[in-house]
């Protein structure tokens, strides 16, 4: 999991920071764009790529698109460390 390559934009960093802080969240691109205060269409595209890269899970059905954080403990730990090094603690 090459996080430098996967999290190649500030938007993707913001999205993953959101999921890292809210690990139980399952939300739509619209919901996530509200929480991180970003453009919905850009968030939707970024989420799609993050799901392809295996760092978020896609739960959609039909027109409902929903995403959540991954479960893998090792990946979550690696992501948390990466985000802390990039974004720092709140």
């Amino acid at each position: 999991m090459n996080l430098n390559k996967i999290l190649n934009s500030s938007l993707k960093l913001k999205i993953m920071k959101f999921f890292n802080e809210n690990r139980s969240s399952v939300d739509t691109p619209r919901g996530i764009s509200t929480w991180i205060d970003a453009d919905m269409s850009k968030v939707a595209a970024a989420l799609n790529q993050l799901a392809d890269d295996g760092v978020v899970i896609y739960h959609g059905h039909g027109s409902t698109k929903a995403y959540s954080y991954i479960h893998d403990v090792k990946k979550v730990k690696k992501m948390a460390e990466y985000l802390e090094s990039k974004c720092g603690l709140d």
Partner: peptide
């Protein structure tokens, strides 16, 4: 609010 949004999204899915 995030938890509520999660419940709502789960309901939609």
């Amino acid at each position: 609010a995030i938890a509520l949004s999660t419940i709502h999204t789960v309901h939609r899915v």
